[in-house]
């Protein structure tokens, strides 16, 4: 099994940390992982993206043009990455702030209203975990217990009391994701 994913949105949406949790979850189930961020000025307020690869085998290129799953969290990323989904692959997006919805017919498209749900949960910071939940519902490539262990690994100890809230957000994401 190899899953090649890109998560793209604004800096500050938790794109990089979502990728890190996913990568740690992969390590927890003995997989090879790679996490390759965009870095530099674009991270300081502009668009941010991260490529995450989980595989049972040695990972080749951490830099890719096409992905099994593309997760899109703003319009700029939609413009840039809709075309990067492999034919037959998956696109997951949050329609909040999207002015041009995805057009492709040769891929599976899912919507998750994560920003709205995070507001409803009165915790804007759970946004990325809602998105992660949506992804895991569509692509159950890591077991929930390993995601929790991944959370434990990637969050500093002083934030461990937030793990139940994160788990709740992941569950919400799994519930609200739907085919577009």
């Amino acid at each position: 099994m190899t899953e090649e994913i890109i998560i793209a949105g604004f800096g500050g949406q938790g794109v990089l940390s979502m990728g890190k949790i996913l990568a740690y979850s992969g390590i927890m189930q003995d997989q090879e992982v790679a996490w390759m961020p965009s870095y530099g000025p674009e991270m300081r307020g502009g668009t941010a993206n991260v490529t995450v690869i989980l595989s049972d085998n040695r990972i080749s290129s951490p830099v890719l043009q096409e992905f099994d799953t593309v997760i899109i969290l703003n319009q700029q990323s939609m413009d840039k990455f809709e075309k990067s989904v492999k034919p037959g692959g998956v696109l997951i997006y949050d329609p909040n702030g999207i002015t041009r919805h995805p057009q492709r017919k040769d891929i599976k498209i899912y919507k998750v209203e994560a920003a709205e749900e995070a507001t409803r949960m009165q915790s804007a910071k759970t946004f990325n975990m809602i998105v992660l939940g949506a992804f895991l519902k569509v692509k159950p490539i890591v077991k929930m217990e390993n995601v929790i262990r991944g959370l434990e690994k990637s969050l500093p100890e002083r934030h461990h009391h937030l793990i139940p809230l994160n788990k709740q957000a992941i569950d919400r994401g799994m519930e609200i994701v739907k085919e577009a």
Partner: peptide, 10 residues
Amino acid sequence: DGVIGQMMEK
């Protein structure tokens, strides 16, 4: 290079 330096792997 910037790829190997910035990338996270296990």
